[in-house]
């Protein structure tokens, strides 16, 4: 035994304990942390896998979908689990990868009713959702509950990620004031998605989580990092907090989570 680590933990986490910025102190922070992943789809698959591998102590996983064969082109943690709830399938994956991780599954739709209650138990939220109402719901719940969040989104060959830190810099609504009009952005069943893309963006999100917990490096706060897999290029746009933001501005219109602000629009459903 060294410190409070078992010999297996020392071996399992040796490559990151060796990192000068991590060490045993950082590994203990990771093991004590609680991270919520919203959506166990493409983004969630890679985020969940690497957060579990790194030894995040508690992983909450929210998803009400079942695993379908069409998911497996990019949702890499669900192999052999067609027909199972994705949350349960993800839990099985995590348990086989790293028994240090406590998994809490929510086999329910993330909604205005349960958002605040679920989020409040966690230190960091990963937005792996696949539709605009849920992106806004996650953002507003994180602003109101003062939780940091990594947002990600993908379509075809392109994706982006940004990180929001409560009361510091812009939130998702500051960057994307309103969702695009229905029909402007095709859903992924129409448009398709390059299978590696959610792996790349989801791992950028996982990196943000780990850096936040460890207190190291520069986060994507106030920065929208965009990626194009065809060009194999990244570019970054600076984003600022908006004084007139509906949820984090000086005179917010949204002061509590109400369903009317997150109307479902089936044309945007995508099942990424």
């Amino acid at each position: 035994m060294s410190g409070s680590f078992t010999d297996e933990q020392i071996r399992r986490y040796s490559r990151q304990i060796i990192l000068p910025e991590v060490g045993g102190k950082g590994q203990k922070k990771l093991l004590a942390s609680k991270v919520l992943v919203l959506g166990a789809g493409g983004l969630g698959s890679s985020a969940i896998a690497y957060l579990a591998a790194a030894g995040v102590g508690t992983l909450g996983i929210v998803d009400d979908d079942l695993v379908e064969v069409s998911n497996l082109q990019r949702q890499i943690i669900h192999g052999g689990n067609i027909g199972l709830f994705k949350a349960k399938s993800a839990e099985n994956f995590v348990r086989s990868l790293n028994s240090d991780v406590d998994v809490v599954t929510y086999q329910e739709r993330f909604s205005a009713k349960n958002a605040g209650k679920i989020i409040q138990d966690y230190d960091f939220v990963v937005d792996g959702s696949d539709n605009y109402p849920t992106h806004y719901l996650i953002n507003d719940a994180c602003v109101l509950e003062k939780k940091p969040c990594s947002h990600g989104s993908i379509l075809r060959y392109e994706g982006y990620a940004t990180t929001t830190i409560p009361q510091k810099g812009p939130c998702y609504r500051c960057i994307f004031k309103k969702p695009p009009p229905p029909g402007l952005i095709p859903n992924c069943q129409e448009a398709g998605v390059f299978g590696v893309l959610p792996g790349i963006i989801g791992n950028i999100q996982a990196s943000e989580v780990l850096k936040y917990i460890l207190g190291i490096g520069e986060l994507l706060a106030g920065r929208l990092l965009c990626f194009n897999a065809l060009d194999m290029s990244f570019f970054e746009a600076a984003a600022e907090k908006r004084m007139d933001c509906a949820v984090c501005g000086d005179w917010p219109l949204i002061t509590k989570i109400e369903q009317k602000n997150y109307r479902e629009n089936n044309s945007e459903e995508c099942g990424l």
Partner: peptide
């Protein structure tokens, strides 16, 4: 190696 150094590093953190 590398556990020799990992264990050294963990012990040093306690000192």
């Amino acid at each position: 190696c590398p556990y020799t150094f990992v264990k050294t590093k963990l012990r040093l953190e306690e000192l």
